[in-house]
Structure formats: C-alpha cells, structure tokens
C-alpha cells in the first residue's frame, strides 16, 4: 500500500458535474446580468460633480434654510412611528396567537398565517400607494401602512416564540384547572414577554425608518420634505435631514438595547 503523495482540499460540492454546472451557470448569469445593465457613462460623468457636491454638503449640512419643513416633517414622522407601532403591537398579538400551531385550530392558523404572508411580501411603499389611493394623502395612510407592515414582522416572530415555549410549564398551569385566558396569562405570557418587548422596541426603530419612506408616495412624514430637497438639488438640506434620521436611529438603538437588558 502506498501513501498518497498529493493532497488538495476537499471541494465544497463533491459531485464534479454539479460543481461545474453551478460554476458555469453562475458565471453565465453574471455575464448576462452585467451585460444587461445599461449605463449612460456621459450621464454618470456629469453626475460625479453632483455626487461630490452631495458629499461636500454632508460636511456643511443646512439645517436652518428649510427648518420649518424639516421640523414639521420629522415631528410627523415621530408621531406616525408612535401611533403605528402601538396599533401594530395591539393587532399583532391576537394574530400571533392565531398563527401559533400549538394554540390555534388549523383554519384560524391558516387565516392568520396568510395575513402575515401578505404583509411580509409587499414592500411598505406598495401598500402605502394603495392606502393613499383609498384613504387619501396624509399621515393616516402612512400610519395604516406601517401598522400593517408591523403585523407581518411582529406577529410572525411572536408566533415563533410562542411555538417554541417550554410546553411543560404551560401544561402545569393547565392541570390546575385554569381557564383558557388564565392559562395564556400564567403559562404562555411570562415565557414570551421579554421577546415581545424586545421585538416591539426593535420595531419602533424600524418603523421610524419606514416613516421616512412612505412620505415619498404622499403618506406623510419627513419623506416628502426629503423628496422635495432632492428634486431641487438642495443637497445641503437633504444631508441635514439624513443626518437627523441617522442621529435619531442611533439614539433609538442605544436606548432600546438599554431597555432590553433590563427586561431579560
């Protein structure tokens, strides 16, 4: 018996046919995809100048020029964030209960799961367009949009948490002869509460960022102001808005991680 003299690392995909077809397929796709990206280089060249202006604007953001617009837009965004997060949480909880296979009968489960799927599939802006068409321009459509998006996120993750509880704790509460609501309150709720609080805080943060976007389609918030600034090429105002958004998100993340540590 001879010892092998060469050694090569084992390939990630062992079957050579599959390995080669995946490699060639990927290369082919990359070629086709890159080939189909049409770039107007002249336009890009002209744009570079504006790009530099934008970068420069970040160094000198203009908060004062349109301060009334900015402050009103930001206030509206914050207000929308609060309202939509609260509504989203209130609606998500029953849907999460319905979407947990260990609590709900099959028809309820399927119904709640399909609400979650629809909410998760469509980007908020698409929902916002439809709601603006139905409810008219303004923050109300935005609030509904973000609440609806919250449901897809919160109900799904909460339902997962409920499905992963320790069933023996819930069983023990059931064996005392508790009612269904008492069982929920003593057997389930304590187990998922930290997760619910953590997810809600996280969602508050996401909802603020979303509230900056729905304004682009007329659903209220800072997005409209931002859109105008870009349309007028007022990069210094746009930079000011973006800096404020980043600052608020940083603050929200910092405080929510502090709160999450407390409720563990």
């Amino acid at each position: 018996m001879s010892t092998p003299r060469t050694w090569r690392p084992k390939p990630f995909i062992e079957n050579p046919k599959l390995r080669w077809s995946i490699t060639i397929g990927t290369l082919l796709y990359m070629l086709l995809a890159l080939g189909s990206v049409e770039v107007n280089w002249m336009r890009v060249y002209e744009g570079l100048d504006r790009g530099l202006k934008f970068v420069a604007a970040f160094a000198q953001p203009n908060f004062t020029g349109r301060w009334t617009d900015i402050s009103e837009g930001l206030a509206e965004s914050l207000v929308m964030t609060v309202v939509s997060t609260v509504i989203g949480i209130i609606v998500s909880i029953p849907i999460a209960l319905g979407a947990s296979r260990n609590l709900a009968p099959l028809p309820v489960y399927l119904f709640c799961r399909s609400i979650i799927t629809i909410s998760r599939t469509f980007q908020e802006v698409i929902i916002a367009i439809l709601f603006v068409a139905i409810f008219g321009f303004g923050p109300f459509a935005g609030v509904l949009t973000i609440s609806f998006a919250t449901i897809g996120f919160l109900a799904k993750l909460l339902a997962e948490a409920i499905e992963n509880i320790d069933p023996s704790q819930a069983e023990a509460v059931r064996s005392t002869g508790s009612r269904w609501w008492q069982w929920l309150n003593y057997g389930i709720q304590p187990q998922v509460m930290p997760r619910l609080i953590g997810l809600s805080l996280y969602r508050l943060d996401i909802n603020f960022r979303e509230s900056a976007v729905v304004g682009l389609v007329g659903a209220g918030g800072i997005g409209a102001t931002l859109n105008t600034a870009f349309d007028r090429y007022e990069f210094d105002t746009a930079a000011a808005i973006l800096i404020l958004i980043i600052g608020i998100v940083m603050f929200a993340e910092y405080s929510s991680s502090a709160i999450r540590k407390r409720v563990q």
């Binding site: 320790d166 023996s168 704790q169 069983e171 023990a172 509460v173 003593y186 057997g187 304590p190 187990q191 509460m193 930290p194």
Partner: peptide, 8 residues
C-alpha cells in the same frame, strides 16, 4: 423537571 413558570 418541575414545570414551574420560570419567569414568575
């Protein structure tokens, strides 16, 4: 394994 509700 006791089955106490651990967070209560």
């Amino acid at each position: 394994e006791y089955a106490l509700v651990e967070r209560l």
